[in-house]
Design a protein around this nucleic acid. Structure first.
Lengths: 132, 132
DNA sequence: CAAGTAGTTTAGAACGATTTTAAAGTAAAA
DNA sequence: TTTTACTTTAAAATCGTTCTAAACTACTTG
């Protein structure tokens, strides 16, 4: 399926700007990035785009499940092209994130989901720090 | 141990402002809060404090291990008075966090920590959403 | 206790990420 | 086509947080 079809399937109009971003992000390679990182990639691909459009687009992509947003208390939002359930190592000093594939983690016991709620995904974060 | 002693032990001068905050936060009750929540509590306790002081203080308390900061992609920093290793349910719609005690979760298998790093804490986040 | 000094508080300015605005542009529907 | 709804844009606005630099205060040392 090409990117135009992916956007259509997600219910998004395949505009010029969304196609530029889809061509960068939806190449099957897993990576973490910020809005600013993406703008730099867009610029170096010879295109340009308003930062507002980039934010709009990332929000739409996230809401449609084309990308994920990482839970992180950094001041800048971090997105992830790996949309499968998976986990992260986080170096709190540098903010660096490293993927952990889902089958690397095995939960023996999970708590009871609160009354009236459904489980909507489990994320394990392993904070790491450099050995001295 | 009283709050003045707790601050001293943590290497912090027990100033008037830090004591006001310690009296609110270090009462043994677990809760999640933002800087603004705390300022409201300070105000309704009949005191007042510059927002800069509140941020300074929360940062110092966090660095000393008197409180924790929750990993969350919300736009506002969320702090936690529960400093034991524990986990959270997160309702992404509302941002509501619910504690999960450490013994409610049991990890059968953990990935190998990357070369040159130490494990510095594991956090499990279970995203939940309201049943329709 | 007195005087020094190092750390702390403050209001307000500054900052950086993100969102809003409102006008111009574009894709899809009729 | 023409219309309609959605999208993009630059610039302004907003919001949480940090910085600044001056006033203040806790602790140290004499």
């Amino acid at each position: 399926m090409n990117n135009k079809e992916k956007l259509r399937k997600a219910g998004l109009r395949p505009t010029k700007q969304r196609m530029i971003i889809a061509d960068i992000l939806l190449d099957g390679i897993n990576r973490h990035f910020t809005a600013e990182n993406l703008q730099n990639e867009i610029n170096s691909s010879g295109n340009s785009m308003s930062i507002a459009t980039i934010y709009n687009c990332l929000k739409k992509f996230r809401n449609c499940g084309l990308i994920k947003q990482v839970e992180s208390s950094k001041d800048t939002a971090i997105f992830d092209t790996n949309i499968n359930q998976h986990h992260h190592f986080l170096d709190e000093e540098t903010g660096e994130l490293i993927d952990i594939e889902n089958d690397e983690v095995n939960l023996r016991k999970l708590p009871k989901i609160p009354q009236g709620y459904l489980n909507n995904g489990v994320e394990v974060l392993i904070k790491i720090k450099k050995k001295i």
